[in-house]
Design a protein around this nucleic acid. Structure first.
Length: 685
DNA sequence: GTAATAGTAATTTTT
DNA sequence: TTACTATTAC
């Protein structure tokens, strides 16, 4: 063994070492929170390489792009970049995309294809509802898109899914919608997120030769966060792994928090049945948190009945008590937390970056932002209002999508009149009416119709002359840039050129933006250019990246570019996003009935949902290394109105002797009967 | 075809 | 409260 790997093993406890030394066959690592699983994974990969296994034979799958990136960084620090050449470290979705990029044509799609955003999918559904004469405003309430996604993630046929999960009369309707949905996607030459997993599995089944090629190349698989695997991922993976079953999975059933997305905890619970002779290793020593924090975590999770029993042991001291805060309302809650943070930074020599504020729902972040800003405490909202949600950014991405994939009518109709060029709703509707009247099998796409119109101005009656010449100029513009992008050796240069050609700055002024917002919007577009330049500079494949690669990256990595977790700032994030992260100080806020546990799932799914919410609580608690604060408000503004809220049932599940209450003076005063008057008064300030 | 206004609906969690 | 939609006036 090289001295390097010797040193690596020395730092592991016996169980960790046993897990890291495993090479062939199936292995299940049950890794409790903070038990050093990342170290085990990276050490095991080092061990595989040390034993002469080629990096190109290893695939490590993570749940988020962020953890993929971190794993890569850790590995290259340990072994050097060279040693990792050709190793796949990615999310399930990027892995699927990699395969589709090679083989999607066998399913009748063309390259490049588009990956549709939730917004695009909604638009697709609007058309389907119109066609079926259904009420468009019900799309959201029906949750059709959600159901379609769940159906795909469960690897069920629409019929099976519908008959299992819905009542009988809606089964046919669901199947009809499902079928139309896929026809639409096919016409757009586009896939949704779930297809990135589902379609590769389909290709494998349809074409064993392709599957065989991947089996030959990839011989060792490691899957992180296995408890969050869904059936479609399981199927995809299972095909590649067979028959060698060199599969090492790492997970913790207590941290399964994605069943609403089709993840099935039974997959990890059934691992030993699925893969007989599996080596099972339990990591129960926690190196992260104080004994007090762990005691709370253990006691909370013990309320769940269906779990692989385990208890985390602490190696740290007792530590401070858990601080509990009950504030008058959500503004006071945020203010108290901000004040605590201020004194932690001043008194305890903590950096803002050591601190995180966690919450159940995104909208809770606003008040915190406000209060932190008021006190000049540097902070950052992870994943909140996303860069990619900005209108101008989405517009520019739509341009790129049309240029890359001419069939992408969704993107095309988004930009056809942006900047305004005189092709308004009316004209677009006339064209679309004409299109929809064509036979659906052979119907041309919007873009080629536009070119036809130019040559044959009478094709669509009632189209104004001005509109026709605008259509001409627009399609010329797209064609010109399609040419430039395909010839360019620096895509980012062409993109910058295109942005300035489009004169978006003038458009922003016309929108009535003031000078500052217009500038900010231009800066956002500039940021898009930077991202493309960054991609070009750091591309590791042999062929240089094209627009398709850039777009894929944008849709799959939307949430985490390098700016996503800037150091040195208080981090604000949802509990879901906090999984896998740790902070010296954690504030877990809004622990109230009606908020956490979230009420909506409780109605539908009862105990199962409550158990998942509890796991989420457990995840939150175990993020903290030294100090944990739990808080709630007595009143919270909902839809602009104050409502009295109760303490969450989770409070009762905590060891009360570990809690130390911090008083909010306004709550003390509220013990008078003037409760409502006071909260209202406070809110008015 | 565009801009301004009034009216309405909404808050789980995300690759 | 905000954010999005539909209607109306220009």
């Amino acid at each position: 063994m090289s001295p390097l790997s010797m040193a690596n093993f020395k730092n592991l406890n016996p169980e960790q070492a046993r897990a890291a030394r495993h090479i062939e066959g199936p292995q299940l690592i049950l890794a409790g929170a903070g038990s050093g699983k990342t170290t085990v994974i990276t050490t095991r990969i080092a061990w595989l390489l040390h034993r002469g296994i080629a990096p190109t034979a290893i695939v490590a799958v993570t749940f988020t792009n962020k953890s993929a990136r971190e794993m890569k960084q850790r590995l290259s620090r340990m072994l050097g970049k060279k040693a990792l050449r050709g190793m796949v470290v990615s999310t399930f979705h990027s892995l699927g995309h990699r395969i589709l990029k090679q083989h999607i044509e066998t399913l009748g799609y063309r390259l490049p294809f588009s990956i549709l955003s939730p917004e695009d999918l909604h638009n697709v559904m609007v058309d389907i509802y119109r066609e079926l004469k259904l009420d468009i405003s019900q799309i959201r309430d029906d949750g059709v898109l959600f159901k379609i996604s769940l159906c795909k993630n469960s690897a069920l046929s629409p019929h099976d899914f519908a008959s299992q999960k819905m009542n009988l009369e809606s089964t046919d309707l669901f199947c009809a919608i499902y079928e139309r949905y896929h026809q639409s996607l096919k016409i757009l030459n586009a896939v949704d997120f779930d297809d990135l997993i589902l379609l590769p599995g389909k290709i494998f089944r349809q074409d064993p030769e392709i599957l065989e090629r991947y089996r030959h190349r990839w011989r060792f698989f490691m899957i992180d966060e296995y408890q969050d695997t869904n059936h479609s991922q399981y199927d995809f993976l299972n095909q590649m792994v067979c028959p060698r079953n060199n599969l090492c999975v790492v997970g913790d059933d207590d941290q399964s928090i994605y069943t609403w997305r089709g993840a099935d905890i039974n997959i990890i619970l059934g691992f030993e049945k699925d893969y007989p002779n599996a080596q099972v290793v339990r990591l129960e020593t926690n190196y992260r948190s104080t004994a007090t924090i762990l005691k709370a975590a253990n006691q909370v999770i013990a309320h769940n009945s269906q779990r692989m029993a385990k208890t985390l042991r602490s190696v740290s001291g007792i530590g401070d008590k858990i601080k509990a805060i009950a504030a008058a309302d959500e503004v006071r809650e945020a203010a108290l937390i901000a004040e605590q943070i201020r004194s932690l930074i001043n008194g305890r020599r903590l950096e803002p970056g050591d601190i995180a504020i966690l919450f159940r729902t995104n909208f809770q972040s606003r008040v915190f932002e406000q209060e932190l800003r008021n006190r000049n405490i540097p902070h950052h909202v992870v994943g909140g209002y996303r860069f990619f949600d900005r209108r101008e950014v989405r517009d520019m991405i739509a341009y790129l999508r049309v240029i890359a994939n001419p069939h992408d009518e969704l993107a095309l109709s988004r930009i056809i009149n942006r900047p305004r060029r005189g092709i308004g709703q009316g004209s677009l509707q006339k064209i679309m009416d004409y299109l929809l009247a064509q036979e659906s099998e052979s119907r041309p796409d919007l873009f080629s119709i536009m070119e036809l119109i130019v040559h044959e101005p009478g094709l669509i009656p009632g189209l104004r002359k001005e509109s026709i010449s605008a259509i001409y100029e627009f399609s010329e513009f797209i064609n010109e840039y399609r040419k430039r992008f395909s010839r360019a050796n620096r895509l980012s240069v062409v993109l910058a050129q295109m942005i300035s050609d489009l004169k978006f700055d003038l458009e922003f002024q016309r929108d009535g933006d003031n000078e500052n917002t217009a500038k900010a919007r231009m800066l956002n577009l500039g940021e898009l250019v930077n991202m493309l330049a960054y991609l070009e500079d750091n591309w590791e494949e042999n062929e240089p990246p094209d627009l398709f690669d850039f777009l894929a990256r944008l849709s799959m990595q939307a949430q985490d570019n390098d700016e996503e977790h800037p150091r040195g700032r208080v981090q604000l994030l949802t509990l879901h996003l906090s999984k896998g992260l740790e902070y010296p100080v954690v504030f877990l806020s809004g622990i109230e009935e009606g908020l956490f546990p979230a009420p909506r799932t409780l109605e539908e799914n009862g105990d199962l949902a409550l158990a998942e919410e509890r796991r989420l609580f457990y995840v939150g608690i175990t993020r903290a290394k030294q100090l944990l604060y739990l808080s709630r408000a007595a009143s919270r503004r909902k839809f602009g109105e104050h409502q009295i809220v109760e303490a969450s049932r989770f409070w009762d599940e905590l060891p009360q002797d570990c809690l130390e209450w911090i008083a909010d003076e306004t709550v003390e005063q509220n013990n008078n009967t003037r409760q409502n008057v006071l909260t209202d008064l406070l809110a008015a300030i």
